[in-house]
Amino acid sequence: MEFCPTCGNMLLYELPYLDRPARFFCFACPYVCNIHNRVKIKRKQRLVKKEIEPIISPDDMKNAPKTEATCPYCGHGEAAFKEFQTRSADEPATLFYRCLNEKCQKQWRED
């Protein structure tokens, strides 16, 4: 959407006709902006993904209380847990668990 720099109205699109290029024009004032098909890509830039920080780091779970919870990944029966308020105050808190099995160490949550 383009707007007229003179009066601020939304510009209308007009199709090309004979040797005249396509253009935007203002219906309220004489402003006209020709559209040329000269698009140049100067360079391509690769996007770099940011590293995602874990919600609960392993250091947070070292001193966390333990409970009897079955790990959905390995079936181990004990996990450390931490409770966070992830939504608004009138919603219940979210429980984050970390498996205490040395080989697993996976995290899951319960809403």
Rank of each mutant, 00 (worst) to 15 (best):
C7N: 03
G8L: 05
G8H: 10
G8A: 08
N9F: 08
N9L: 09
N9T: 07
M10C: 12
L11W: 04
L12C: 14
L12P: 08
L12M: 15
Y13P: 01
Y13E: 08
E14M: 01
E14Y: 01
L15C: 04
L15E: 11
L15F: 09
L15H: 10
Y17H: 13
L18C: 00
L18P: 06
R20V: 11
R23D: 04
R23I: 00
R23K: 13
R23T: 09
F24Y: 10
F24T: 00
F24E: 00
F25V: 08
F27I: 14
P30S: 04
Y31Q: 00
Y31N: 07
Y31D: 05
Y31K: 01
V32P: 06
C33D: 15
N34F: 11
I35C: 04
I35N: 05
I35W: 02
I35L: 07
I35G: 04
H36M: 06
H36K: 08
H36D: 04
N37Y: 12
N37T: 11
V39E: 03
V39K: 08
V39A: 08
K42L: 13
K42F: 12
R43Y: 12
R43K: 15
R43W: 10
R43V: 10
K44S: 14
K44H: 15
K44G: 13
K44Y: 15
Q45E: 15
Q45Y: 13
R46N: 13
R46F: 13
R46I: 13
R46M: 13
R46L: 14
L47W: 03
V48L: 10
V48C: 03
V48S: 07
K50I: 11
K50G: 12
K50H: 13
E51D: 12
I52S: 00
I52C: 03
I55M: 08
I55N: 04
S57W: 04
S57A: 07
S57E: 09
S57H: 04
S57N: 05
P58I: 02
D59M: 06
D60G: 06
M61K: 04
M61P: 07
K62L: 12
N63H: 02
N63A: 05
N63E: 09
A64C: 02
P65G: 10
P65Q: 11
P65Y: 03
T67G: 09
T67V: 15
E68G: 12
E68H: 15
A69G: 04
T70L: 05
T70A: 03
C71D: 07
C71G: 05
Y73L: 12
Y73K: 13
C74W: 08
G75S: 03
G75M: 05
H76D: 05
H76L: 08
H76W: 08
G77I: 06
E78D: 04
A79E: 02
A80Q: 00
A80E: 09
F81I: 05
F81P: 01
F81G: 00
F81T: 00
F81W: 06
K82I: 10
K82L: 10
K82D: 04
Q85T: 12
T86K: 12
T86F: 14
T86L: 15
T86R: 13
T86C: 13
R87V: 12
S88I: 03
S88H: 06
A89M: 05
D90R: 15
D90T: 14
D90G: 12
E91W: 14
E91D: 15
P92M: 03
A93K: 06
T94P: 00
L95I: 14
L95W: 02
L95C: 09
F96P: 02
F96V: 14
Y97E: 01
Y97Q: 00
Y97I: 01
